[in-house]
Design a protein around this nucleic acid. Sequence first.
DNA 1: CATCTCCTTGGAATGATTATAAATACATTA
DNA 2: TAATGTATTTATAATCATTCCAAGGAGATG
Lengths: 155, 155
Amino acid sequence: MNNSLSYSHLVDRIKDAGVRPSNVRVHILKYLEEHSHPTAEQIYTALRETMPTLSLASVYNTATALAEAGLIRVLGMNGAGVHYDCNTHQHAHFQCELCGKIFDMDMPGIDCPGLEGFNVKKMDLRFWGVCPHCDALAQAATGLYFGESEEDEKQ
Amino acid sequence: MNNSLSYSHLVDRIKDAGVRPSNVRVHILKYLEEHSHPTAEQIYTALRETMPTLSLASVYNTATALAEAGLIRVLGMNGAGVHYDCNTHQHAHFQCELCGKIFDMDMPGIDCPGLEGFNVKKMDLRFWGVCPHCDALAQAATGLYFGESEEDEKQ
DNA sequence: CATCTCCTTGGAATGATTATAAATACATTA
DNA sequence: TAATGTATTTATAATCATTCCAAGGAGATG
């Protein structure tokens, strides 16, 4: 069991970042720790079940506040809507064009010629394509791999 | 004088891409060749002067068509609105947080560990920060560089 | 308990983009 | 050149994510 997901630990993390640990904030951060790269809408829909008065505006407000405090990161993958990411370390992203899933990748060292003289403060590296799971399914569907049993769907 | 900007050359390029060289298409591509990373709104405003009936919808439709034909590229820098880029070669971008200008950068070689098994089809590398010109202005404004004359504004 | 501030809410407003339907231009054939 | 069919463009309405705003609520402080 990962202690970083416990309620009191989350409260501490939020406090340490200089933000008041309100209910909504803790729950949204908790949700982000437990779910990969959700959108505001997804957070809203999921948390509404246990917090019936939660508003979408609060999700946006809160996510923005958490991002400004450096607790989470805002991720635009160019689909409709923005995703939130509790992994604030420098890292890259891959999005599968078939299942839509977003994967974290280690950030490779980047030595960009021509960037001398530019004061770089933020960097973003993103990939799109087909993830291994969907790739296997796609290849099976082409009929190239007769006799292969379908892989089990796993979230 | 760069021949690639001539009207008939543009017509040929559009034809070669399998798209009919309509007036709107040629003018929008021409505008993109001559201006760096404009938004749909900017294209619309600029071209309206010589094409008074041009509609914003046409700019979006046309840009999308040109992008699908591989003649231009759509660039989301996460500000409001999308930018269009006539440079279709693989390259990175830097956006200045002060002047908003977008600069093309050579794409460095990227060796991303963890990407094995992923079928990568598209990659995007973006930087934000302060460009050399604004950096100089900002440093002058802090008063650290007494006696420095302001640099001339150049687009 | 009184007060102050910050948080949350619901709904309206905004802004970029897309959809739709009518009008126009273009290309082809007669 | 006129007729016809198709592709393009236009104007406007619709959509969707996000932000704004005003009012109510919760918690801390005195």
